[in-house]
Write a protein that binds this DNA or RNA. Sequence first.
DNA 1: CTGTTAGCGCTTTCAG
DNA 2: CTGAAAGCGCTAACAG
Lengths: 343, 343
Amino acid sequence: MQKEITIYDIAAKLNISAATVSRGLKDHPRVSKATKKLIVKTADEMGYRSNSFASNLRKKQSNVIGVIVPRLNSNFMADVLAGIEKVVNNNNYNLFISQSLETMKKEASNAKAMLNNRVDGLLVSVAYDTTSFDHFEPFIKRNIPVIFFDRVFDHAMCPQIYIDNYKAAFDITNHLIKQGCKKIVHIGGNQLRNVYSERFQGYKKALEENHIEFDNSLVIINDLTSEAGAEAAGEILKMDPLPDGLFVANDICAVGCMQALKKEGINIPDDIAVAGFNNDPTATVIEPPLTTVNYKGHEMGEAAAKLMINYLLDKQDLQQTHGLILRSELIIRESSLRDKSKQ
Amino acid sequence: MQKEITIYDIAAKLNISAATVSRGLKDHPRVSKATKKLIVKTADEMGYRSNSFASNLRKKQSNVIGVIVPRLNSNFMADVLAGIEKVVNNNNYNLFISQSLETMKKEASNAKAMLNNRVDGLLVSVAYDTTSFDHFEPFIKRNIPVIFFDRVFDHAMCPQIYIDNYKAAFDITNHLIKQGCKKIVHIGGNQLRNVYSERFQGYKKALEENHIEFDNSLVIINDLTSEAGAEAAGEILKMDPLPDGLFVANDICAVGCMQALKKEGINIPDDIAVAGFNNDPTATVIEPPLTTVNYKGHEMGEAAAKLMINYLLDKQDLQQTHGLILRSELIIRESSLRDKSKQ
DNA sequence: CTGTTAGCGCTTTCAG
DNA sequence: CTGAAAGCGCTAACAG
């Protein structure tokens, strides 16, 4: 196990000062080309690697960005993380990643760890049950930027990046209505979270605009898993008369529900037209393919990371971009396409 | 922006030494219960947070584990990462995560960043085109453990965690043969990677044991994406006579291929029986559901992280667990189940 | 353009 | 059980 080389070792060998080595290594303007080159060369030869702790300790910044997400293993989040990683890595920052597993408790403990590790900034998509901002307060106090994405939290100091869930849900519900649906069930998630409450509100608004009375007994709130979708199918089948439309707040749940409905002999879209949200890979595999809302996680991750990096580098004012709304698009597939002549 | 509190501030307030505060904060045995309690209390009141840089600098260890994977946004990898995160987080370590995007070049640059950031250990699943160990050599020199998982690299000092791809592929091919398949196509990935070469070898072995002559023109090597699967379907359809079995090295590609085959009127499983690998979520959504090999990424991630943590904590000898082979299981679904009376 | 110096905040001997 | 003191490796004034 070789001894670690420090700038002092390099300095000694070259008969110059450690300060010059430090400067030479980071391309400081006031070091002669020649010595700079020499320094880099010998550093390389000696197998030097900079000690980021010492540097961070001195500079009081870590070059690390922390990320807290509900879960790592969702298709959407993985996409987001890939986008974040790309941007962060290209800017010579590092990524601390942790998952809250959908509980505020773990989210808070993760935030604390991030704080202790002196992350330069924090990117967060909040857990299912997060109701308080307390665990982020220490960041604000210390002027460490906190940016929310997708599942956002309202706070004056924290920019948010998301899509227009309200409009997307409005459009998709409207589409179902235009296809002739008159009794549309909505399966949604925890209404604490913007993404789910806005999708619900968009659904309601579309009904209203089309003069369809909102009926709360057509709304099912669950955790949007595939299993929950199958269960919801049971409830739907008990409704009398049967609904003719279904808007689910995510594709995973929509697919689970469709499979269960199909098993019971329901024809999609003729008996019930179905739409989901997210454009999950399964949406194109299920039969019939699922109408959904496409919004790219990769893009959202990149946008969030870029905003963070720009702030960190240029100290660009975060307030200016308080809300960044990304584009989403309605993708119409067969699961909601009815032959209107049959109506 | 408040000033950061240090142990000196606490010490001053309590009229004790910083050394005692340091000890008290980490539950050192030789500090009286009373002062310990007092220290923790005032630290809390003053809003103290430990500076991990200073601590790391002094202790020469970071409490950070690095992870390099080909991509973050694959269902399997996301699962693995979730498993790793859980174990690492529970042990008060932090996670640096980066992706090689399937190139050795980026893998090497990521490894270097990990090295500079003094990770205590490195978990790696190698890129598509990794042929050299050079970028990991500095870790070995410094006695920093490197553990490979899933896509492993052979090196005396590096434990490996994987499943028995050879046997799984053998079993699945054997199953196809038992279903009456006589002409079985194999779609595989880069043969540089153990996971794909072993699946290929298992396939060959099963043919051999069943006295079916291996035919290289039935082997298609691609990048195992869904699109590649669709393309492969084109090649398959040109074969004359048509094959009656298909074993694909992952589900994503298998599903893409199935969709294309179905579009051309091929009946699965009666015309061609199909099997995949991974038990991807889409495997149960495609129709007919896909026969595949199940192996849980979460479990693999946990196993890899546990091995790492155990080594780091107990300095348990890594050599002892050079190869950790996890369980996988064949899941037979309709895509490969033939009505034998028809044969 | 280069050197001197001090200090970031913590841990850990060693001494009491 | 507690304190004094040194030092981890680097950077940034400041001074030449």
